[in-house]
Design a protein around this nucleic acid. Sequence first.
DNA 1: TTTTACCTCACCAAAAACAGTGATTAATAT
DNA 2: ATATTAATCACTGTTTTTGGTGAGGTAAAA
Lengths: 221, 221
Amino acid sequence: MKKKIYVHVADDHKILIEGIIAVINTDKEIEIKGCSLTGQEVIKWFANKKNSADVLILDLTMPVLDGFEVLKHFKKNKIDQKVIVLSSYDDLKIVQEVLSLGCKGYISKNSAGEHIVNAIKAVANDEQYFSTDIQKMLLKSLSGQKVPSGKMPEKFLLDSLTEREIEVLKLITKQYSTTEMADLMNLSTNTVETYRKSLLKKLKVKNAVGLAMYAVKHKIV
Amino acid sequence: MKKKIYVHVADDHKILIEGIIAVINTDKEIEIKGCSLTGQEVIKWFANKKNSADVLILDLTMPVLDGFEVLKHFKKNKIDQKVIVLSSYDDLKIVQEVLSLGCKGYISKNSAGEHIVNAIKAVANDEQYFSTDIQKMLLKSLSGQKVPSGKMPEKFLLDSLTEREIEVLKLITKQYSTTEMADLMNLSTNTVETYRKSLLKKLKVKNAVGLAMYAVKHKIV
DNA sequence: TTTTACCTCACCAAAAACAGTGATTAATAT
DNA sequence: ATATTAATCACTGTTTTTGGTGAGGTAAAA
């Protein structure tokens, strides 16, 4: 019998935690050592010297403190905690961000539950682990290919807009047409259209209405 | 041995589905009869006469068609399907909305997994079921107390416009194109365009973005 | 120094939106 | 009985948006 692997699970949805526990319990080698519903709880739990876990399964979107904050906390305080991120986001930038923050594995929530068990074992054994969709994405980017942007938290989307794009976005919400904007900004209509297309792509919406709704939601207007 | 209860699960996150299945499998009385990842899949599944389920567990946020649209489809086509909504939203208006659309139970994703089993049994037995947090909220509102608004998607209500126009307006804010609306509402594109033009005239705006902004301004967003 | 990000513009093609006019039916109100 | 309103659809246009590809210049960063 190998040594047991102890795991801590953090996600704001209890039901998902229970699902993970159910999946993990099918494997005798792994044991749950506790779970948290917020990033704050995670940090508190690991701050207690009586607590420890070989692997932390970490969701990125949680109230109070999110997964990014937890990873930053570990890095800042030089706590060498093995972390597997379990997220519904599948954007390259997000993956790169958490990897730079020291996470050792990344599993998309869209992948099958068995992957969690494999990931835990790999990471506990000082390897890295990525679910197949994430693996493909990383390989693609390493081979220099462009990776289309995927689902990601909105705070990242906002940052990715340039000044000009935000200008155009504001004018769109004021019902300006492309020619009117080009006039006002002293640009060619082609240029304005380029920004328009770039906005659609970056914010992952279908049309100008989607842009307007996004702008409202994020108080850009 | 009682008669088995057959259940269909719809959620865009496979892992959550697996979690639910794991929880449900602890109870011999209940059996999974299929699952869907989008609202469109749900509708298609139930449209097939070979398929049926006593209870549908329904997420509200799904791609292609969301949970609201699924409930609307059932109501419109007078399909008497027992539905339990499983959502991360905990706003009173959302709960009222889905109840008015005929749903029989509402479980917050923050509640423990055992509730799902209880909910399924209750609803299969023609009762209603709400997780404790939702119950508290409903009681509070029934006793006339104000309920603070919780997490919710974008919703609104409007006057002076006809029902059909409001429907179209709602869909426009969701980035539907005219053909998509015509498809969904079983109308000709000409008709939908008529509503569109009528909206532009009545609300005195230039384009679809103006409509969307109006919708936002005159409602709860 | 090389790479990357941003701003700028062009050309092409298809899809969608916008504009106006008019018409039928059914229900409702006067 | 008649007028109004809502819902439905058609025909014919023009304008705008959307999608894709490509590319030059500049400034900052690695």
